[in-house]
């Protein structure tokens, strides 16, 4: 099967029949299917506590699914090369090492994949300016603001070379102002790198603003995802949230999540 696929048709990530439940806990996913094309920015929108982070842990290979298959770049999990990192994971908390400088924190992924320290640092230095981190090379994490820490964390994931990038609510801990700034910044960075991204969030605006496609999980256990194409032109900036087409899309998504007055009225 894998051989006859051309590169273009191969999704960067495809999940088939994924089932998982916590040991002696509720079922989280049941026969879930979805896939992400290479170079696509997809947001996964789900209410809190729906198992979003568990899904990331499954995709990152940190926990094993009960059933089903996770295929990355055409290679199923078992065939994937062991040593190399498969996905680029950006956790919810920045998880920066307090004993490492910005430079060495960002170089962690490269270092672990066997790149020499010097070369790793060179690659980090090259990207620091476009990440708005110029001059912070030798700073320690506690000397940075929350937004800057998330940028270092994102740079670290990007440089780890994994594909796709899994971003787990990376901006949820930031205040509203910083957050909007970070969303615009991510849009810019993404324009430059065009990496495949799966972005988990519970914020509808954030999902629509950033992505090409929004997947909505509204059932529990999650057995299927509703899909919304976000046809807003790129490059985008924060003002896109005021476009009528954006607002219309937002209304549709909210309806699916059961948050609009019409459904709350109990007609359905």
């Amino acid at each position: 099967m894998n051989e006859i696929r051309t590169n273009k048709a191969t999704p960067a990530l495809s999940v088939r029949g994924l089932s998982y439940s916590f040991p002696e806990g509720p079922v989280l996913f049941e026969k879930l299917d979805f896939s992400i094309r290479a170079g696509e920015f997809v947001a996964l929108l789900a209410p809190s506590g729906a198992g979003k982070t568990t899904l990331f842990r499954l995709l990152a290979g940190l926990v094993k699914p009960a059933a089903g298959e996770i295929v990355l770049g055409g290679l199923s999990e078992s065939k994937a090369p062991r040593k190399k990192s498969r996905i680029g994971y950006m956790p919810q908390r920045d998880c920066l090492m307090p004993w490492r400088s910005v430079l060495d924190n960002a170089a962690l992924g490269l270092e672990l994949s066997g790149v020499s320290r010097q070369e790793a640092r060179r690659q980090v230095r090259e990207l620091l300016p476009s990440f708005g981190l110029e001059g912070t090379e030798e700073k320690m994490p506690h000397e940075l603001s929350g937004g800057m820490r998330q940028r270092v964390s994102f740079l670290r994931s990007l440089l780890s070379g994994g594909d796709p990038l899994l971003l787990d609510e990376p901006f949820s801990a930031l205040d509203a102002m910083t957050r909007a700034g970070m969303q615009e910044w991510l849009l810019q960075i993404w324009e430059q790198h065009r990496k495949t991204v799966l972005f988990i969030t519970h914020d509808v605006d954030e999902a629509l603003l950033l992505s090409d496609r929004v997947l909505v999980a509204s059932s529990s256990p999650i057995s299927s995802l509703l899909e919304f194409e976000v046809a807003l032109p790129r490059p985008r900036d924060y003002s896109a949230v005021l476009e009528p087409s954006f607002i219309q899309l937002k209304r549709q998504v909210l309806e699916q999540l059961g948050r609009t007055p019409a459904t709350r009225g109990g007609i359905v």
Partner: peptide, 11 residues
């Protein structure tokens, strides 16, 4: 969290 992150990086 740091340990998990490192595992995803193939540590």
């Amino acid at each position: 969290g740091i340990g998990e992150l490192m595992k995803t990086m193939g540590a």
